[in-house]
Structures are given as structure tokens and as C-alpha cells.
Nucleic acid binder design. Sequence first.
DNA 1: CCATAAATAGAAACAATTATTATTTGTATT
DNA 2: AATACAAATAATAATTGTTTCTATTTATGG
Lengths: 130, 130
Amino acid sequence: MRENTHFSEKRQAIYNFLSESKEHPSAETIYNALKPRYPRLSLGTVYRNLMRFKQEGAAQYLTVVDGHERFDGNVSEHAHFVCDKCGAVADLDITLPESINRPAEQGGYEISFRQLFLHGRCPVCATKKG
Amino acid sequence: MRENTHFSEKRQAIYNFLSESKEHPSAETIYNALKPRYPRLSLGTVYRNLMRFKQEGAAQYLTVVDGHERFDGNVSEHAHFVCDKCGAVADLDITLPESINRPAEQGGYEISFRQLFLHGRCPVCATKKG
DNA sequence: CCATAAATAGAAACAATTATTATTTGTATT
DNA sequence: AATACAAATAATAATTGTTTCTATTTATGG
């Protein structure tokens, strides 16, 4: 829910879905989820608005996981678990210490944000064989 | 340099280039680099061999950075700096403590590998405006 | 040599994303 | 309410990175 810029109904719907979702949806996932309620929604609109949210920065950032971009409405720094079998992405409550920035900063790098990915099997896939 | 499986000349060249490169090249970068020496090299061959290296596991893993897959011949765990302006990827000598795995492991996740990305501006881009 | 298998080149197919264009919707002004 | 103008959208086409396919080439072993 925001006020400053004029949010069209669809833009608002995309924003809401992203904010409320915990599944780090791809553009297509969002599109499929909203299509029933907004039959005239187009995939291009979803992409356009996600890119806009991303550029507005404060809103959310993206991560490329399994070939598609996945979006995250949670702006605070947090780690992600990526299941390499089913592709699910889950939030993890891991806080990285500031100190890990040191080597990079001393090398002249300017750090804007950090991403930690743990890869492996999610609890569901861990029990299955293969 | 490996011996167990039969390495064709081109496969060996791709493997060598990847091992010796510090730039985390994409398939296309490798293709362009080797093309002069192997004029009949095809991009498909580069992709096929990179996938094979990846599946053989021990060889190397990949990271998706800016829409392309980037490959890394360094198998040991290390962090990456990604310049969001020029797309360069650099290795960082950061070691993550084992303890960060705890929350995920206790949640039933099986961790196979970890990736830490620091995003921002590389030393070259940091001095430029924009 | 010859037979068989593996690796490749080149082209076509594919999938995710981005760009384009015409149309629709919204807003402000009178 | 009618008009003009700007922003947002739908639908489609175009692009880009990657994968698949088939015929050809190269390697290997008898």
C-alpha cells in the first residue's frame, strides 16, 4: 500500500501480491495468480511494473535463481534457501556481520547490498530419493 | 589438466580457459576467446561441455549474474563481487562460518553449497558518475 | 581398413524477457 | 460534460541466451 505515486488497479494488485507472497514469485507466477481476477492483465504489464518497482529501489530487489528472475517484496537483508530439485525459494533468518564487507571495501569496492544463497534440498525434497 | 575421461582438444581448451580465467566467463565469452584458435568451434559445443563440467560436479559450478550464466573454474567456496554497472564478477576472499547453516539445517534443509554475492560498484565504476 | 561409438557444427527450436505500437484509461481544465 | 493531454495497458513482435536436433566428422578398437 503506497500513496505517493498514482497506482493503477493492476499495478497495485501486482504490488500487493508481491508484498504478501512468501514464495519469491517469478513474473509468470504473478501473472497466473492475478489473471483470474484481472482477465485482461497482460504479462508485459507484470514485467513492466516489476522492473519499475525494482528501479524505484526502495520497493524490492531481484535475484536470478533458476533461469527466471524471482522477485522479493521483502527489502530487508535476509538469506535465501534455493532448492536445487524443485526450485523453491525460502527466506532464512540469517544476519551477516558487517565485517565481511571489509576485504571488498578495502579493495575499493562499493557495496550496495549483499545476497547469501544456501543451495541444497528443501525439507520436502530431502526425504525423496533421486 | 585431467586424465580419467577422454578430453577432446576443444573440450580441453574450454576446460583450460575456464580454469585459468579469473573473469567468470559466460559461454559466449569463452566462445569468442577460443574462436580465433579454433575457427570451427561452435557455441553449442561450449554450452555442452560447460554443462558437462557442471554435472561432473567436482569440476565447477555456475552462478547466474546478469541474465547469463557465468561459470567458475574455482570449486572452493569463495564469495563474489558483482558490479551492477559493468557486470564484472570478482572473487573475494571471504570465508563464511559454518554456524550460519544452523537455522536452515534445523529447519530440515540439506545444504550442499553456499554462495555469497556482494553487489555494488567495482573500483573502476565507483570513480565514474552515474 | 572397417565397424562402432563419441563429439562436433550448424541450424532450428525454445523460453524468458524486452521493445513496439495502437488503444484505453485516467486526470485536469474549462 | 466535453476536450485535451499524459500515463498505463494489451497484444504482438522482436531479441537474447540456451537447448535440442540431425547429419557429419573424428576418435577408438578389433
